[in-house]
Every structure is written in C-alpha cells, then in structure tokens.
C-alpha cells in the first residue's frame, strides 16, 4: 500500500469530475478532451520539440517500469535461485505457488489460509469497513458545527508513515496491561490479556483494524465532498415533503454517493493488493505465516529468500490481479475523452 496520501490524491483527481457530475448547480465537469494545440500552424503539423520535453520522463519510465515489467515476466518462468537465471522451468513457479505452498494459498481446510486468502479477508473487511465508517462519519459530520475539526482528526493518520503507524498500534496492542491500551481496557472487564499480534486467530483482525483506522479519514473527506455537492434544494424539498433523516439517507444521499463510493472501493482494493509496509513492520508476516499477504510474499521470497524466480512469479500474479482494474480505468478515461 502506498501508505498515506497517494491513493487519496488519485481518487480526488478521479472523483473530481464525478462530484461535479452529481452537482447540477456547479457547472460542467472537467473535460478530458486534449485541447487542440494552439498557434496558427496547420492542424496536422507536429512539434518536433515535444520529444525534448518528453524524453527524460519517457526514458526513465522505459528503464524503470516498462522494461522491468517485461523482464520480470520472463524471469517468472525461470528457477532464478540467488539471482542466477539459467534454468528455464516453464510454469513451475506458478504451479508450485498455487498448489504446493500453504503460505501462499492453502485450500485444503475451511476456511482456507495463506497470503491470497488473507488478501481476500482484507478486501472484504478493510474495504467494507473503511467505506461504511467513512460514510457514517461524513454524514454525521455535516450535521455539526465542529465538522472541520472531526474530519481533520480522522484524516491525520494519512500523513503518518506506515512504519510509525506500526509503532503506534503495536503499542496499543501490547500484551502488557501496564502498557497496551487495548488490553488495559479489557482488563477492566476482567478479560485478557490477549496477544493480538502473536495469536494467529487475532492477528489479521488486529492488522485490518489498524489499516481501517488509518484509512477512514481518506474516505470521509472524499465522501463528505460528494455529500456537499448534493443540492440543498433537493434536501429541503424532501424535508418539506415530510421525509425523515433515515429516508433522506437511503433515498437521496446513498444513491448520490454511489459513484464516488465505487471509485473509492476500486482504489482501496488496489491498495490492499499492494499492501506491504504495515504487515512487514507489525508482524513480519507472522506468527508463523499467519498474516502474510501477496505483496509481502513477493518481498520475502525474492529478497531475504533469494528465490528471484518465485518472487517474479508473485509479482506477475499481482499484476494479473490489477490488470482488470487497469483496463477499467483506461476505458473510463477514454469514454470521458470522447464525450
């Protein structure tokens, strides 16, 4: 996960147009049509100088992203132990990962386990909770005078490094009741202490809770902007017609924010697939391999483990998971460019 503001900004940029689309009084949405180049020249003439402006960026992108992606694809068909790529193994890395590595995916038990399964849990609970809490806080905050304060409070974790988040929450979860806030609170009711990060049945819930805490502010700010774009006339009219606040929420607010919600959901899911820092800092994938996720596995197998071929295969699996989202985004972008 690009912890912090990265995804927030992308969503702000993506949702910007859409917020406007649901706000009839606010003018036309941002147009994605590339403007015709200015100047009195012929329409088909090109500016050769453009390549000078593009060259540095394109060269870096080619060396650091385009070429490595293709190369990693090739490496994933190689045994690639300790950085030696001489043994072509076809699909064996993939077959081993998917059928013979219980740390990656283990379907023999129910519920299943392994990194892929943990990512499924993350997608369901992290995405669901961030959206639900974000919407709840956004809706409630619009009704009080300290709205700005409450949004700032929940947004602050966005600026905190995942490494620091890891320290903050490892402290909250500390099994020592004189130090860990959570176990101290439970101790008041005679429960515990529970080793949240050391117990395989709690560790994923504890990590997801931390990430939800860190991510809700982002959803709150986006959804709050979307709620604000709903015309006050519509709300007034509904109230005059006798609609109560619950009806207003389900009949007006929820339909009006469903588009930003879906863009947010896609962004959060992409974040889950890339999630690494928090796991690495708080549990190192443990206890055992109980909290591993896909991106953690890629790092762990390739770098400390020296199994470059296997690591490359995991990276390609990440890419394959993200390709549908990539296509979805490009399609959306193109359709905007047409209108």
């Amino acid at each position: 996960m690009r912890a912090g503001l990265g995804p927030a900004l992308i969503v702000l940029v993506q949702i910007g147009g859409e917020i406007m689309a649901v706000a009839p009084q606010a003018g036309p949405a941002a147009s994605a049509v590339p403007p015709k180049p200015a100047g009195g020249r012929g329409a088909k003439e090109s500016d050769p100088v453009a390549w000078l402006f593009l060259a540095p960026a394109l060269v870096l992108l080619a060396i650091f992203l385009v070429f490595p992606t293709l190369y990693t694809l090739a490496l994933s068909f190689n045994r690639g132990r300790a950085g030696v790529f001489t043994e072509w193994v076809g699909l064996r890395n993939y077959v081993n990962l998917l059928t013979n590595d219980p740390n990656f995916i283990d379907l023999r038990t129910f519920p299943p386990s392994g990194a892929i399964w943990n990512n499924v849990l993350w997608v369901i609970f992290y995405t669901g909770l961030v959206l639900a809490l974000g919407l709840l806080i956004a809706v409630m905050a619009t009704r009080v005078r300290y709205e700005r304060l409450i949004k700032a409070i929940v947004f602050v974790p966005q600026a905190i490094a995942a490494t620091a988040l890891g320290v903050i929450w490892t402290f909250v979860y500390s099994p020592n009741q004189e130090q860990g806030l959570l176990n101290a609170l439970l101790g008041v009711f005679g429960i515990g202490p529970i080793s949240w990060l050391g117990n395989p049945s709690w560790v994923n819930a504890a990590l997801i809770a931390t990430a939800v805490w860190a991510g809700v502010g982002f959803a709150t700010v986006i959804l709050s902007a979307a709620i604000k774009s709903i015309s006050t006339e519509i709300l007034e009219a509904a109230r005059t017609d006798g609609a109560n606040e619950i009806q207003i929420f389900f009949r007006i607010i929820l339909p009006m924010v469903s588009l930003p919600m879906s863009v947010l959901a896609v962004t959060l899911i992409v974040g889950v697939v890339k999630l690494f820092d928090l796991i690495y800092v708080m549990t190192g994938g443990g206890p055992g391999a109980a909290s591993r996720v896909i991106a953690f596995t890629m790092y762990q197998e390739a770098f400390p483990g020296g199994q470059y071929g296997k690591g490359a295969a995991v990276a390609v699996i990440m890419l394959i998971i993200l390709i549908p989202i990539m296509i979805f985004n490009i399609r959306r972008f193109r359709s905007e460019a047409v209108t």
Partner: peptide
C-alpha cells in the same frame, strides 16, 4: 506529436503497475 494519445494512455496504464514488478 505522433502517438500522443497512445503514449498518454500507456502512462495511465503504468499508474496501476505495482512497483514490485520492477524490483528484481
């Protein structure tokens, strides 16, 4: 310039690529 829109769409596609594929 030629291929302007194609190159830009490629850049948008790169936005989604997990940096992990570039590491090795």
């Amino acid at each position: 310039f030629p291929f302007r829109d194609t190159l830009f769409l490629l850049t948008v596609a790169l936005l989604m690529i997990p940096v992990q594929v570039a590491f090795i």
